[in-house]
Amino acid sequence: MVLEQLIFFVLAGVATLSSIGMVLMKDPVHAALLLVFTFFNLAGLYILLGAEFIAALQVLVYAGAIVVLFLFIMMLLQVRPGPSLNRLRFFQTGFGPVLALLFLAEVLVVVFASGFALNGGKGFAPFDENNKQAQQMAASVKYVVETAVPLKDASGNTVGGSAANPGILPGLNTDKEPVTAGHPALLGKELYSTYLYPFEIASLILLIAAIGAIVIARRQLSNDNEDDSPSKIGRGISLAGPIPGSPQDLETKKEDRLLEAAERKLVMKK
């Protein structure tokens, strides 16, 4: 099993390094490419986990669709570096990695203190005869296969399946082929039975996202936000202002003036 671990280390190490590189790259295109590289490595890890379908999805959706979309956008928009208005920028840059390390430390503590300790869990490998977890997993797969409802064709004959379990999965002969947890057929079966509603909701989300993306990205009509822009409404409902003439009032007025000036500047810029 050394080979397997070796592969894991290679994949994980490359993924980690390329992700770090992504964060450090100045050019967003480089970052996107490194991100694709990371995703490929992760897909390898999914295969190592016995989740081939997800590995395929990872490559298709993430690397193929999403990152390509990113690249498209990058082509559309040119980034002009400007001065930072964010007063917490320094704090963010300095304290962000520290926070990330703190979080990592916490994860490590949790992992080490829990039953997933490196030497305690004895690792995990599919189809390991000596691994109790693996045996339980196999039993679970078997359970899914056995309790599945037989499929019948138009003439009433069972379709597919094995001699012991006729017509469980179309196109899958369980006698001949090993059934793993990552098998797309099993996953699809599960998705369309146990996770039917979430699945439908996910499809709805995709639809909404598609429509939403069109609506948001569409060029807005010229005087859409002239009268009731959120900023104006927001200031309009301030009910309890400070007492007129009080120091607070003068201060707010001053701030209001500043805000108005900023707004005018924005409008002019447009």
């Binding site: 208005l85 964010n86 917490l88 704090f91 963010q92 962000g96 926070l99 703190l102 979080f103």
Partner: peptide, 16 residues
């Protein structure tokens, strides 16, 4: 502040 990076920072602090 209105800068969403700051909000992300607060979230991260909260997460940790």
């Amino acid at each position: 502040t209105g800068f969403f990076g700051n909000y992300a920072l607060y979230m991260a602090i909260g997460l940790v």
